[in-house]
Design a protein around this nucleic acid. Structure first.
Length: 438
RNA sequence: GUGGCCAUAGCUCAGUAGGUAGAGCGUCGGGUUGUGGUCCCGAAUGUCGCGGGUUCAAAUCCCGUUGGUCACCCCA
């Protein structure tokens, strides 16, 4: 595709999903919706952009997401809008705007949709990417944390992603994070020169990040660093222990990892990540993650309401998921072919009329409206996945019949027009139940 | 945002002592009379990502740019 302009070029990092790939997306989204439904969640749909302030206040001005990755612009009224970089802030905004807390003590919501971050694209990382996520408002219990993680893990399993692990940590509540950051600074400051360049910067900006650095020099120093779990309050500790205990009872595998931090400021207490461990996602092996954010709702002006949620990247799940798990069980297809050696226009119209008639019965019907030679029409039918073909020509029209061919058994018989639909339906159903391996 | 690698038909790629392009798959047509997965024959499609430079001559060398990719950063 040659081009001197960008007219026919999608925006960097924003991709098309063509019909060949779309079924996998639909299957994944359907799996997520089904999982959420089983856990009592309802869908929330919010706009793709919000007033910028929602994100700067909600996610945190200092986070990378807000500081350098947002797609912001001015609308005609001079307001600063931002394409949502994640789903939680929008969902919380909707929750508050519609005062859901006043009528539902606990709200369980899920969402599916595009998010936008201006990062450098790579495999599994795009500027428009898509997430599925779930949130629970109004329940601060360890039980809901565990249930949510269980939902997330079960969903990943249902996609046939066997090589993955759940890592769990607690950020504590109140000023635990700040106290811990101070403790880390106290530990690392004397060692500053031994830290990686990035971590020397992190030391002042976000010391917790030093913990999940991949630089060898940082990894070497990590051993002596104070442990986050060690500085938790008794209550936070109990909450965390309870989450672990319930997960164990549910049989949801996890490992406690004191180094996971999460990139958004609003998290407190339970946080978790689910990553793919086969290595085929490269550096983008984080499939999803989430945690508790008990102060976000009050930070945004609501009354204090505990909340917890998670999100997964659809593109990454798609990379990791097995084809079997995402196979869409599409309806069997019937093709209508026209023998048009004589009275072509009449026969073509009749073929379409037959197709319409079958479609009105709820059947999936394809017609190669180019109406080439019969063998071409057969090839077209085959490629469309048709298991049955209706063949009509001048002779059949005159006789008020049609040829009905079983494309699998390669057998054909003459069928009266008045009983065509039921015969086609029977043939399609037989093909579905008769081929368990495909 | 930083660094490395890559960029040839719809797809996968071949084409390096620089001389204006090929294969497989796919697509389309044909193998005469109304029947498909094999086989045979034939055809179309690329300003070799884009722009500039070196050269008599560049897909092939140099620079820039755009896009992709890998690592980092960060995250989903």
């Amino acid at each position: 595709m040659s081009k001197t302009s960008k007219v026919c070029q999608s925006v960097t990092g924003m991709n098309d999903v063509l019909p060949a790939e779309a079924p996998r997306w639909r299957a994944l989204e359907a799996a997520f919706r089904a999982a959420c439904a089983r856990y009592g969640f309802g869908e929330v749909r919010t706009p793709v952009c919000e007033y910028t302030e929602l994100f700067t206040r909600g996610i945190g001005e200092e986070t990378d997401v807000v500081a350098k990755e947002m797609y912001s612009f001015e609308d005609r009224g001079g307001h600063s809008l931002t394409l949502r970089p994640e789903g939680t802030a929008s969902a919380v905004r909707a929750y508050l705007e519609h005062t859901v807390g006043n009528t539902e003590p606990v709200a369980r919501w899920y969402y599916v949709g595009p998010m936008f971050r201006g990062e450098r694209p790579a495999k599994g990382r795009y500027r428009q990417f898509h997430q599925v996520g779930a949130e629970v408002y109004g329940d601060g219990s360890a039980a809901v944390d565990a249930e949510l993680i269980d939902l997330a893990y079960g969903f990943v399993q249902s996609l046939g992603i066997s090589q993955c692990k759940v890592r769990l940590n607690s950020l504590g509540s109140g000023d635990t994070k700040r106290r811990y950051a101070a403790a880390l600074q106290a530990y690392y400051t004397p060692l500053r020169d031994k830290l990686s360049e990035d971590s020397q910067r992190r030391l002042t900006v976000n010391p917790l990040r030093i913990l999940d650095s991949k630089s060898p020099e940082d990894v070497a120093l990590r051993g002596g660093a104070p442990h986050l779990l060690a500085v938790l309050t008794d209550e936070d500790r109990q909450h965390f222990d309870k989450v672990c205990a319930i997960l164990t009872r549910l049989g949801t595998p996890f490992e406690v990892d004191p180094t996971i931090i999460r990139g958004l400021d609003y998290y407190s207490r339970t946080i978790f990540e689910i990553s793919e461990t086969s290595g085929r996602l490269g550096a983008q092996d984080a499939l999803g993650g989430g945690g508790r954010y008990d102060t976000l709702i009050s930070d945004l002006g609501g009354k204090p309401t505990p909340a917890v949620g998670f999100a997964f990247g659809i593109e990454r799940l798609l990379l990791a998921a097995s084809d079997e798990a995402l196979r869409a069980d599409s309806a069997p297809v019937c093709a209508v072919l026209a023998v048009d050696r004589t009275d072509a226009d009449l026969v073509h119209a009749e073929a379409l009329a037959i197709a319409k008639e079958l479609r009105s019965q709820g059947l999936s019907v394809v017609v190669d409206t180019r109406f080439g030679k019969l063998d071409k029409q057969f090839r077209h039918a085959e490629r469309a996945g048709a298991v049955a073909a209706v063949i009509v020509g001048k002779q059949e029209i005159d006789e008020q019949t049609v040829k009905l061919k079983d494309l699998v058994a390669r057998q054909e018989r003459s069928v009266g027009r008045d009983v065509l639909a039921e015969n086609v339906r029977a043939l399609l159903q037989a093909s579905r139940s008769g081929s368990p391996t495909e």
